[in-house]
Design a protein around this nucleic acid. Sequence first.
DNA 1: GTCTATACTTCGATAGAC
DNA 2: GTCTATCGAAGTATAGAC
Lengths: 222, 222
Amino acid sequence: MTDNRVEALFKNESEPTTREKILDVAIDSIARRGFEAVSIRDIAREVGIRESSIYNHFKSKDEILDTIIEYFMVELSRSDPFETPMDVMLEKYGPEGFMNMAGRAYLERINRPRIARIWRIIAIELYRNEKVRQFFRTTMVQVPVSAWEQTFRRMAELGYIRECDTGVLAREFFYYSIYLFFDYFVISFNESTYCRFTEDMLEDLGPHIKFMMDAIKVGGAQ
Amino acid sequence: MTDNRVEALFKNESEPTTREKILDVAIDSIARRGFEAVSIRDIAREVGIRESSIYNHFKSKDEILDTIIEYFMVELSRSDPFETPMDVMLEKYGPEGFMNMAGRAYLERINRPRIARIWRIIAIELYRNEKVRQFFRTTMVQVPVSAWEQTFRRMAELGYIRECDTGVLAREFFYYSIYLFFDYFVISFNESTYCRFTEDMLEDLGPHIKFMMDAIKVGGAQ
DNA sequence: GTCTATACTTCGATAGAC
DNA sequence: GTCTATCGAAGTATAGAC
């Protein structure tokens, strides 16, 4: 990238620039076949230019992937997930309702059209791209687990759930969710349905949330 | 392969054959860098022969990977996991003890030295190898989940746990386990510790089993 | 069964005309 | 900014001598 303004990569104007076309094609191809299997020639052909023209927009093949990943990270870190205070939400919907809504808010935030394909790229490149791995481990695992731990602690303080190990509880909730992510984007990946991932995930998440909340509701087992 | 006797690939004799050396080097390299990043030349160099000699043992690069995967599948499907009847185990150790022991037995069965590296290959190749994906989805997800569903149903029949949706229960237990697999072999993969995966997995599995069993023990929450 | 030599393809990337 | 032309490196695979 020349200007480092990742957030302005896609301007949503009527006619996309060549650079935007290249990124769009790259995102699509890499999500389908993986970075190593997609060549500069493949991308150029689909965009409708020669491969040498690619190098007017990116100085190497690696820079294309780096740009995609950086775009993804910036997009994810944009809007905050919660606007209404947790205590208010809890009082209004109860703990199970709160979790369902928080899950939905999170999934809707991370599932915009172009981003959904990059999720698949993240899942694929995780094993060989140290930057992606680092990002996933912290931003997609550790940070949410810590946040959920705080949330459960607050729930316990307010008497919505009984006292228990909130660290265990956070992992119980979130590791299952990450499994669903892998299931959706790798194990059971289906190219044709892959933009409905918010709906599908929520459907699978519902029984999980119910099971967990039943396990720790006030007056339940010790 | 010429003779299809996958199970006899590694004969454990004092001096490994060239074919065995090739497979060993291939397993190691592919587990580290992925199939596409490893070339025939890389493998030949490390074995100590010329690349053309590889073709005396395998007719293509793809056949090497196919052989590795087939070897893996056959090895996994060998010994049965349980020898002692479940009812006896349950009476002796209780439901939580039973699950811990079953987890340990399963993990020990699937974690032999050469196999541990192929687990990493499986995790890596999942996204682009339809055969691996099919195998994982059925043998590593659906079959164990069904088996655990049966097990939980029996536990409920015998009064060790209270009546509940055993399908939900089986997924609660096993999806978490599969997350641990991905965490171990992809997200938090560490080349230097990757043969201790049985011990590490069991350590993480303990609190999970305890949480689940607390949730469904007799006399707990409805 | 291993070697040398090589065919053939595809890859990422560059130079220079327009 | 796109084109033609091309380079050098690396890939899989084969032929044939020993």
